[in-house]
Nucleic acid binder design. Structure first.
Length: 508
RNA sequence: GGUCCGUUCGUCUAGUCGGUUAGGACGCCAGGUUUUCAUCCUGGAAAUCAGGGGUUCGAGUCCCCUACGGACUACCA
């Protein structure tokens, strides 16, 4: 077969925010396209008008942009196959449905939704499943069971109708899946799905196949939930006579709930306390807010790295990949077959790794707005000195304040447990002597401080651990925090002395 | 219920040509460093490869069965 240009698409439905499973699908498409020098297309599948959610499309575009997933063609960037919104392609689909009708691969059906609903309920009551297929279609109201006159009468009268695919009574359909291998299904198991709805819109199945063909898509990489309908899609390609340009399929495994089983859903995030959406989303109807990775402080590259490894691996022991490296290393062959559970701890670890990779200046730029909000008015230079002291201790920029507030504000209380453990009646006297030493330390540099303070403690034969920890208590109010001497250097002589005096007065 | 897909440490996974002490990472535990905590370093526990049958000198790897899990089963995508 001749070399075919690689063209893949990500085709979400704007029915709400894109969840991380969708982002991962987009990512794998993107990596696959970039790896092979192919094109990446964003198509919006909005054929269901009843489920349209305002803002969802913009949300999808913004999310993907934040993730660094770029498109060569699509609803927001245009391209040779525009429009890329299926609602705007509405007029194009009818002719394809008609084509199928003409070839006898599809038929009109006049059953009302209510009548079908009743049939389904009856079947359910009899512990069976109603299927619109070879065994039932002759008993239903359609162009197969009705006379030609009756059909044209219904049509000219303007009766509501749908167009259904005609599944062969016998035979097999074979789907070649890049991830799952050969999947065979008996036609008898398939049902006559609606291709064209009574509102004049195609269903996913028709629109999807037609657009993939028209847009010359070479590979369909989508979620596993589409695997059961893939045989019908293959059949459609056969019916249209497009088998020689039919895309190759790859059905991705699902993202599962971290606890228990089942696929990850919006509710799980709320329940387990982690975002399932890339960006924060406010439901336009209910005003309900769902958290996002961006707002939770994840770096896009960390988020993408984490997501990429949920279902794919490089085959090596490398775990940290930037987008460039992901593109280089990606291959569908290394995509797993089984669903993977999201792991919050590992997601945090990834973010920590990326935070460590950022320069102090980058972190300062992200942190300063947070500090300003807390009315912290210190020089940028000071902030730049704080960052190296605390960056190793946090997963997120948002956690930096908790690790450093005492460098900006004096402690107002002192940990009782530490007082009990380290404080002694002679401590005020010892501290006063240390203040004297501090006052004599000139310049107040890290090196000087260290030799002066430690030298004094040794000289006076004091307990190093006790004094140092009390000094930390004076500075921080508790027993945690970065290196003591570094903190004291940063705080400066006046503040250090003041904090010791404060502590002496406060602790009795 | 039916159809299809799946099943290696708690979690993400390596393993793609049958011969490995079944490897790595997160998390967990211990020791070291840091006179604190975190980081970091070292080490450890952790998978009878879902179970059972085959095939084979030899099976996580091939075949069959069973179990369990999941997806789908709309004029939704």
């Amino acid at each position: 077969m001749a070399e075919r240009e690689i063209r893949v698409r990500f085709a979400p439905s704007p029915t709400g925010p894109l969840h991380i499973g969708g982002v991962r699908t987009a990512l794998y498409n993107y990596l696959f396209a970039r790896k092979s020098g192919g094109k990446m297309i964003l198509r919006i599948e909005d054929t269901d008008q009843t489920r349209f959610v305002p803002g969802a499309e913009d949300y999808i575009v913004e999310s993907l942009q934040w993730c660094g997933i770029e498109f060569d063609e699509g609803v927001h960037v245009g391209g040779p196959h525009a429009p890329y919104r299926q609602s705007e392609r509405k007029e194009m689909y009818k002719q394809y449905a008609d084509d199928l009708l003409q070839k006898g691969f599809a038929y009109y059906a006049f059953d009302t939704p209510e009548s079908l609903d009743t049939l389904r309920k009856d079947a359910e009551a009899a512990k069976k499943t109603f299927v619109y297929n070879a065994v039932t279609r002759k008993q239903l109201r359609n162009s197969l069971s009705m006379s030609a006159e009756e059909v044209s009468e219904c049509l000219s009268r303007g009766d509501q109708y749908v167009i259904r695919i005609l599944i062969p009574e016998t035979g097999q359909v074979v789907v070649q899946d890049l991830i799952r291998g050969t999947v065979k299904v008996d036609c008898a198991q398939l049902d006559d799905k609606v291709l064209y709805k009574s509102d004049g819109m195609p269903t996913y199945h028709l629109a999807n196949v037609v657009d993939d063909h028209l847009m010359n898509i070479s590979h369909v990489i989508r979620g596993e939930e589409w695997l059961p309908s893939a045989p019908m899609h293959v059949l459609l390609y056969q019916y249209f006579g497009w088998t020689d340009t039919m895309p190759q399929f790859a059905h991705l495994p699902l993202l599962l709930k971290p606890d228990g089983n089942g696929k990850l859903s919006k509710r799980d995030g709320d329940r387990l306390g982690f975002p399932v959406f890339p960006l924060r989303w406010t439901d336009p109807k209910t005003a309900e807010v769902s958290s996002g990775y961006r707002e939770s402080g994840y770096f896009p590259d960390a988020f993408i790295n984490m997501l990429a490894l949920l279902g794919w691996n490089s085959g090596t022991e490398q775990e940290l990949f930037n987008m460039k490296e992901l593109i280089q290393a990606f291959s569908l062959e290394h995509v797993g077959k089984s669903g993977s559970k999201f792991d919050l701890e590992k997601a945090k670890w990834f973010n920590h790794q990326y935070l460590l990779q950022k320069s102090d200046a980058e972190l300062a730029a992200m942190w300063i707005p947070v500090l300003r909000e807390k009315n912290v008015n210190v020089s940028e230079d000071f902030i730049l000195q704080v960052i190296p002291l605390i960056k190793e201790r946090v997963h997120f920029v948002s956690e930096m304040w908790d690790q450093s507030w005492f460098l900006f504000n004096n402690p107002e209380s002192y940990d009782e447990a530490i007082i009990k453990k380290r404080w002694s009646p002679e401590m005020p006297e010892i501290l006063r002597n240390i203040i004297l030493v501090l006052l004599a330390t000139e310049p107040f540099s890290r090196e000087n401080l260290e030799t002066m303070v430690k030298g004094h403690i040794q000289e006076k034969n004091l307990n190093m651990g006790q004094v140092m920890n009390v000094l930390r208590l004076c500075m921080v109010g508790s027993s945690t925090g970065p290196d003591l001497i570094s903190m004291m250097t940063l705080l400066g002589k006046d503040l250090v002395v003041k904090r010791i005096e404060n502590a002496i007065t406060a602790i009795k």
